[in-house]
Structures are given as C-alpha cells and as structure tokens.
Amino acid sequence: MTGERDRLLADAVRLREDGRREEAKERLLALCERFPLDAEVAYQTAWVHDTLGLEAEAVPHYVRAVEGSGLSPDDRRGALLGLGSTYRVLGRYPEAVTTLGDAAAGFPDDAALKTFLAMALYNTGRARDAMEILLTLLAATSQDPDIAGYRPAIEHYAKDLDATM
C-alpha cells in the first residue's frame, strides 16, 4: 500500500508542478480520502489548494499536516509557512502571528518565516515589532555594500527606531 501511495502522491505533485493544478487537486483529494491521517498527503493537498487561490479550503489540510506526524523538517517548515501565510491572506491575523511566530522560533534561521511573520505583525497593528524583524533581517542578509556599510546602525535602530546614536 505504501508503494502505491508514494506513486500516486508523486504523480499528483508532478501534475501540480506541471501546471495541471485542477487535476492534481482531484487526485490529492482522493488520496486524502484513502489516507486521512497522512500528513504529507494533507500538506500537498493544502499546497495545491493555495496555488489555485482556494485559501479557505487549504486551511484544514494545512492544519491536519502540521498536527500530524511524518513530515520532513523542510516540509513541516513549508506547511507552517503556508498555514500562517494563508491565515494572513484570509484576514485571520492573530492566528497568522501565532503560527508564524511559533514556526520562526522553531526554525530561527528561516528568513521567509520571519518575513511573513513581520507582515502578519503589521496587520495586527504591531508595526514596531514588524520593523524590528525586517531591519534585523536586512542587516544580516543583505549583500548590498551600501546596506552592509551601515549594518551596525541598522541593527541598533532595529531594536529601537526612536533611539539616537
């Protein structure tokens, strides 16, 4: 059964990657019926719904994926980012902040999680916290020589935008 499941899942993912998302969605929904506790199937099903602009329909699949077991660390990170981002798109900002904040704590080196967390924080009126995250991220990751030259100042102001040097 596992070999068949793996083949069917790989076929559905390939369809999504080839732009045949509706067909992929139908196959993944059928797999969800056969394997309702399978976190990887749930994650792929959520992902295809997201690519189709069906965010509300993606949420229960993302939830099942992150609450289940069996995802690789990279897929878990992707599922958490997808869930948090989807909550944000749906206007469910507090849930987005919680999901993305927990994910960023669990994957502290992931710049994408921090970026989406900053957007969700902004949506909840926490612009100062959002700016701190983004400025810290910019200072740490920018290869632009003009930014790099000001890294100490940017890191200083990231902690307190109202501070003076």
Rank of each mutant, 00 (worst) to 15 (best):
D6Y: 01
L8V: 11
L9K: 01
A10F: 00
A12C: 09
D18W: 15
D18T: 11
D18I: 14
G19T: 12
G19W: 12
R20A: 13
R21A: 11
A24D: 01
K25F: 04
L28A: 04
L31R: 03
L31M: 02
C32Y: 01
R34M: 03
F35L: 03
D38F: 03
A39G: 07
A39F: 10
A39V: 04
Y43V: 13
W47R: 14
V48S: 06
D50E: 14
T51F: 13
T51C: 10
L52N: 05
L52T: 04
L52S: 05
E55H: 10
A56L: 07
E57I: 06
E57R: 11
A58D: 04
P60I: 03
V63D: 06
A65F: 12
A65M: 09
S69N: 12
S69F: 00
L71N: 09
L71Q: 08
L71S: 11
D74Q: 12
R76Q: 12
R76V: 04
R77H: 08
G78K: 11
A79G: 10
A79F: 11
A79E: 07
L81Q: 14
L81I: 10
L83R: 01
G84T: 04
G84D: 09
G84L: 00
G84M: 00
S85D: 05
R88Q: 08
R88V: 03
R88I: 00
L90T: 03
R92L: 08
P94R: 14
E95S: 07
A96C: 07
V97T: 12
T98L: 08
L100N: 01
G101A: 00
A105Q: 13
A105S: 14
P108D: 00
D110A: 03
D110S: 12
L113F: 02
A118E: 01
M119Y: 13
M119Q: 07
A120C: 01
L121C: 04
L121R: 05
N123E: 10
T124V: 13
A127D: 15
A127G: 14
A127H: 10
M131V: 10
E132Y: 07
I133K: 02
I133T: 08
L135V: 02
T136I: 07
T136P: 01
L137P: 06
L137A: 07
L138H: 14
A140S: 13
T141Q: 14
Q143N: 15
D144S: 13
P145R: 15
Y150D: 14
R151H: 06
R151A: 08
P152Y: 01
A153H: 12
I154M: 05
E155R: 06
K159M: 06
D160Q: 12
L161D: 05
D162W: 14
A163M: 09
T164A: 08
T164P: 00
M165L: 15
